[in-house]
Computed example of a mutant assay.
Amino acid sequence: MAFKERLLRTQHGFTLIELLVGISIMALMAVLGWRGLDGMARAQETTRQRADELLLVQAALGQWGADLDALLAVPNTTPLDWDGQVLRMTRRSNAVPDEGALVVAWTRRDVQGAGHWLRWQSAPVRTRADWQQAWQQAALWARNPGEAERRREVVLLPLDNWQLFYYRGGAWSNPQSSGDATPGNAAALPDGVRLQISISPGQALAGQVTRDWVNPLLGGGKS
Rank of each mutant, 00 (worst) to 15 (best):
M1S: 14
K4N: 10
L7C: 12
R9C: 09
T10S: 07
H12V: 14
F14V: 12
T15R: 14
I17Q: 03
E18Q: 13
L20F: 11
L20G: 01
L20V: 12
V21D: 05
I23V: 13
I23H: 02
S24Y: 06
S24V: 07
I25H: 00
I25M: 15
M29N: 00
W34T: 06
G36S: 12
L37F: 11
L37A: 13
A41E: 14
R42V: 12
A43S: 09
A43L: 04
A43Q: 05
Q44G: 01
E45Y: 13
E45V: 12
Q49R: 12
R50Q: 10
A51M: 09
D52T: 11
D52Q: 10
E53L: 02
L54V: 05
L54Y: 04
L55K: 11
L56A: 14
L56K: 06
A59M: 05
A59G: 01
L61R: 02
G62F: 06
Q63A: 06
G65A: 13
G65Q: 15
A66G: 06
D69H: 00
L71I: 03
A73D: 05
P75K: 08
T78D: 09
D81M: 08
W82L: 00
D83H: 03
G84K: 06
Q85R: 11
V86Q: 00
R88Q: 11
T90D: 04
T90K: 04
R91C: 04
N94Y: 02
A95Y: 07
V96M: 13
D98M: 09
V104C: 02
W106F: 10
R108H: 13
R109N: 13
R109M: 10
V111E: 08
Q112R: 14
Q112K: 11
A114G: 07
G115T: 07
W117S: 09
L118T: 08
W120L: 07
Q121V: 04
A123K: 03
V125R: 01
R126N: 14
R128P: 04
A129I: 14
A134S: 00
Q137H: 11
Q137W: 08
W141S: 01
E147H: 11
R150T: 09
R150W: 09
R151G: 10
N161R: 15
W162S: 01
Q163G: 11
Q163E: 15
F165I: 02
Y166R: 06
Y166S: 03
R168E: 07
A171V: 13
W172Y: 11
N174K: 07
N174M: 06
S177E: 15
G179F: 11
T182I: 13
G184N: 07
A186Y: 15
A188F: 10
A188H: 14
L189E: 05
P190D: 02
D191H: 08
R194S: 02
L195Q: 07
S198C: 03
I199L: 15
I199E: 02
S200P: 08
G202Q: 03
A204L: 13
V209L: 13
V209T: 04
T210C: 02
R211Q: 13
R211T: 09
V214D: 12
N215G: 01
P216Y: 08
P216H: 11
G219S: 05
G219W: 12
G221P: 06
S223G: 06
